[in-house]
Each structure stands twice: as structure tokens, then as C-alpha cells.
Design a binder for these strands. Structure first.
Lengths: 300, 300
DNA sequence: AAAATGTTTTTTCACGATAAAAGACATTAT
DNA sequence: ATAATGTCTTTTATCGTGAAAAAACATTTT
């Protein structure tokens, strides 16, 4: 099988959406930057669009013939990268329960179960190891450390150190820094969401990540910025599996964010510190309550 | 070629050293734990020892027949792991100069140059990426971020945050904690080294790592503990390539460590903080002076 | 019966091979 | 002359394969 053409399929799907907007497509290099793929992939896409009668393609002219229909799109599941597939599979097992700390992880078994080669699983595990949930025994298997209370506490401890620092750095940024405009935009998005929270509460997760990443970037420290990947990953799956009081939790969080934003704009370090602490405290609390008690017991 | 038997060769060499000490070897499982390898490897080792007339092996009896000679050992370079080989090769290129920030890294070329498969190089790069010196472009090449002044500053910033915390946690540990005994042992080693600094100054690097790791462990936070891997890696190569005033630097560092240890033992948080800061400041200074000025220039 | 040795099975590690995707070079159109 | 298209080359992503090493099972020894 070698390599799936998910890059092409995903770019093709995104390319279809462009057809709605124009009567003719731009040049190949332009399409390439637009969709974030190489010209090689663009040409494969154009070839198929021509084949299915979506466009007439002759050198520079790429005329749109018809609007894309739902069946023109490739199925969603064919557009995922292998590492996304493996990650999802792995996290499902991990959170489904029965994944006790100390349990060993078998590359071959995982690969067979997911239906992929061992190389991809190995590479995934290596990448995943920086999240602190698994550990490698030299010349041997991986060991699951478990999504425990201890893990959540260690994670949030670092998060708090880093975010308090970043927030202080943020507030100290000069008035003409472009981040203030970004913050204004985010503030507006928060206000909109606050109004429509009853129906759109699940849009919070994505907004949350963008907000915190903006703040962390003010640290100008790659280790702080990169650490947010760990947090984002944990919260991503956390949001997917802990749906209890989701609406209420998100409503509270949006309000906390708005207070946090106001504090940042005030540039008063004391206020920033207080607002940041308050929000992080409730974020930690939410995370902790979602961890099954079993996992909190001492591990043999 | 598939897989080299470096595990066996390395364990064999270490096993040879056991022959000097006893007249007969222990059981297979015992040897396994002693050398940190499986029984399968132990049996391969014993088989060779018998073949080369080092021991007489009959089931439980493994009698030593003669002392190992220098030519009984496998050559050092055959005992390295592939990832060690790749890491060394990679770091040599990186530090040899001509490795400008922004330069792209070619997996295939690296693999060919080192004479290994691409998979191993890929896995190395993924593991290495957490050190913050390289970055992956999706579906494409890796980009070198460069061993710049900025990198050193970001690294030391986090180090200082983490170590000050760990040191405070260390000092707060109860009197009956086993770490105090470990600290006493390290203190003694420092005293011995201080006395013999003229000839043994290059033994500092290893002692340094053990000392700081002991302190970081007091944080009881895996992210802090793991972060020391980044520092250890950088300092490991730093020590190898910056030999200027090595003796003087190490002499100063040993003295600072001793003051730091005394502060920890006093359990006076103010003293701990001061001693820790002082040492970290000079460590940062040493690292910064070793970075070529070219790397400090703004990158296009 | 506990622990060792002997034997077999499974897993990890590393490679070469191959399709997808990127990138480089050559040619043509504005 | 610049920027696009057309074509060819190189690199990345992934797999299957096989040897090294680990782990599991069976048998023997104390």
C-alpha cells in the first residue's frame, strides 16, 4: 500500500470549496500556496476536476463548469493523516478505561489492530512520548504511565508557571505591538460566543486554544510555546470525553477569559496575575474532576 | 543488514570485566539483571566465552578458565547504538559550523552520509525535535533553527525557573528522606574532585549532571525532570567542543556546587535561592560565551 | 517447589523498496 | 523578462521483511 494519498484528497476537498466562489481558478503556484500543497498535487487535483466535469482545463484557463455536489467530495475519513488515525485509535484505548498505569504497550499489536505498519506506530509513540504519558524501556516495550491525578497535577503545575509568566510578558508588550489587535479580535469572538453560548458552547474548545496560544507566544520562549502542545492535546481529548456540564463549564470559562482579557488590556500586572490565576485554577479543577478516582489510587 | 548486535557486544564487553572478579559466574537470570539484558543475550555471551576458552560452561557450572585479554573485547565502536551513532554524526555537522539557521535537513542525504537506513534517521530526528533545535515542515523537510544565542537564552530561562523550584522543594524535604544521603555522597565526590581538580577536571561534566538531576527529581514533576534531558544534551556537546579554560571553569563550578550543597543542607530557603541563582548565572554565562557570534546575528 | 536451564514464540529494530508528494529544471505563453 | 505550464528528479511516508533481542513456555536440576 506504501502511502495513502490523503494529502491530495484533503486538498481536493478544500479545493472544491473554491469553485463556489469564482468562475475560474488561479494559476497552479497560486493554488499551491492557497491549499498548502505542491504543484504536483495541484495538477493531480485539477486533472480530477476536469475528469469529473467540474472544470474545463486548458493550460492557463481553468473555467468552472458546475458547482460541486456532495458526492464530489472524498469521504472525510480518507483525508486523515496516518498519525491522526493512530493517535485517535491510541487515545480511544487509553481513555476507554482498562488502561491501567504500568501496562505495557505492544507496537506490533497496536499496528495490527489499527491496520498500519509498525514503523508508523513507532514514530507515533516517539512523538507521543513527549506528552509524558508513556515511557520507553531500553531495547524493550513502552510502558503506560497512565492518565492519573498525578499527571494532571504535574501538567497544570507547569502550565501555571508558564502562563503566569507569559501573561506578564504579554501585558508588558508595547502599545504598538500587533498582539493587541489580535487580542481585540479574540475579545470580540468571546463576546459573540457569550451571547450564543446556549447553542454554540462546543465552539469554545477551539477558541480557548487560540486564546492561550496567543498569550504563550508573548513569552518568546520556544519551550513555553511548545509546551502548550501538551496542554492542547490533553484538553482536546478531555473535551471530547468529558461532556458533563459542558455548557456550564464553558460559560464560566468564557466569562473568565473576558475578565482575563480586560486585565491584560489594563496592563496592570496585579490584575493580570489575579485573573490568570483564577482562570487556571478553575481549568485545573475541571480537569481533575474528570479523572476517574481509580486512577488516583497509588499504583502498586 | 537488518539489525546490529551491539546490545550483545556491549554486554559481552561488560561481562568480560566480571571474569576478573570471580572464579565462576552466577546463574543466567542473575547475569541478565547484572548486565541489563535478556537471558537470550546472556546465553549468546556465554556461548562465545566458552568458544574462546574463557570459561568452561556446562549447565549451571560456569567456571572461569582464564582472565580476559585486551583482544577478547569487541571494539568500542561496535558497541554503540544506532541512535548514538546518528546523534554524534548529526551534532558534529551541527557544531562544525556551516550549519546556518534556516538550513534544511535532508533525511535521505543524512542517512546516506552516515550509512544507515532512512527510518533510523527519521526516528532520530523526531526524538531530537524536542530539543527545540529543529522543526518539521508538514509533508516536507526539517528546518534547522540553529544553535543560536536566542536558543541558549530560552533554554537557560526555563532551566532557572525549574531549578529554583526544585531546589526549594529539595530543601523542604523531610530529614529522613533518602535524598540527604545521596547529597552527602555527592558532596564527598565534589570534595575529592576539588582536591584533584588539576588532573581530573574533565570528570566534572558527569558529576554535574548527577548533581542537578538529583535536585530536579525533588520537584516530583515529570516535565521538570524530563526537561533536564535537553540541558544535559546541550551541555554534553558543549563540554566536548568548548575546551577553553575548561579547568578554571570546572574549578569554579565545583566550588559553586559545594556552596549550593551547603545551602541545601542549611535548609534556609533564602540561602538556597541565592546559591542556586549564583551557580545558574555562571553556567549561563559559560554557555553564552561559547556560542559563535555569527549565530547571534539576526537571521534573514 | 523454587529456581535454573533448554526451547520456542513474539517483539523490537533496522533495512530496502515503492507510491505519494515535493521540488527542480526545461519549455512555453503573456 | 517574468510567470506560467510541462516534464523529470528527488525526497518523504509507509510497508513488508528478516535478524537481534526479549519474553514466554517447557523441562530439568537442586
Amino acid at each position: 500500500m506504501s502511502k495513502s494519498n490523503n494529502v491530495y484528497k484533503d486538498a481536493y476537498n478544500r479545493g472544491l470549496r473554491l469553485l463556489d466562489e469564482t468562475k475560474s481558478l488561479p494559476s497552479e503556484p497560486e493554488l499551491g500556496t492557497l491549499l498548502g500543497v505542491s504543484r504536483t498535487t495541484i495538477r493531480t487535483i485539477l486533472a480530477r476536476m476536469e475528469e469529473t466535469g467540474l472544470i474545463a482545463w486548458n493550460k492557463r484557463s481553468k473555467t468552472v463548469l458546475r458547482a460541486p455536489r456532495p458526492d464530489d467530495f472524498f469521504p472525510e475519513e480518507e483525508t486523515d493523516t496516518l498519525s491522526q488515525i493512530i493517535e485517535r485509535s491510541f487515545m480511544r484505548r487509553l481513555l476507554a478505561g482498562g488502561a491501567e498505569a504500568g501496562m505495557q504497550i505492544n507496537e506490533l499489536e497496536l499496528a495490527r489492530e489499527i491496520g498500519v505498519g509498525t514503523t508508523s506506530v513507532r514514530e507515533f509513540l516517539i512523538r507521543f512520548s513527549r506528552f509524558g504519558l508513556i515511557e520507553k524501556r531500553r531495547n524493550s516495550h513502552w510502558v503506560l504511565k497512565g492518565f492519573t491525578r498525578a499527571f494532571a497535577l504535574e501538567l497544570t503545575e507547569i502550565r501555571e508557571i508558564f502562563e503566569l509568566r507569559s501573561a506578564a510578558a504579554f501585558a508588558a508588550l508595547p502599545q504598538d505591538s500587533p498582539v493587541w489587535a489580535d487580542l481585540d479580535l479574540l475579545e470580540e469572538e468571546h463576546r459573540v460566543l457569550a451571547r450564543e453560548i446556549a447553542t454554540r458552547f462546543n465552539a469554545f474548545s477551539e477558541l480557548d486554544e487560540r486564546f492561550h496560544r496567543l498569550i504563550h507566544r508573548a513569552s518568546h520562549n520556544r519551550f513555553i510555546v511548545d509546551f502548550y502542545d501538551v496542554i492542547a492535546m490533553i484538553f482536546h481529548y478531555h473535551y471530547q470525553w468529558n461532556k458533563a456540564q459542558e455548557r456550564e463549564r464553558n460559560e464560566v470559562a468564557v466569562a473568565e477569559h473576558l475578565a482575563y482579557i480586560a486585565a491584560l488590556k489594563s496592563r496592570d500586572l496585579g490584575k493580570v496575575d489575579a485573573a490568570c490565576r483564577k482562570h487556571l485554577k478553575s481549568a485545573r479543577h475541571t480537569l481533575l474532576t474528570s479523572i476517574p478516582d481509580r486512577a488516583a489510587l497509588p499504583q502498586h
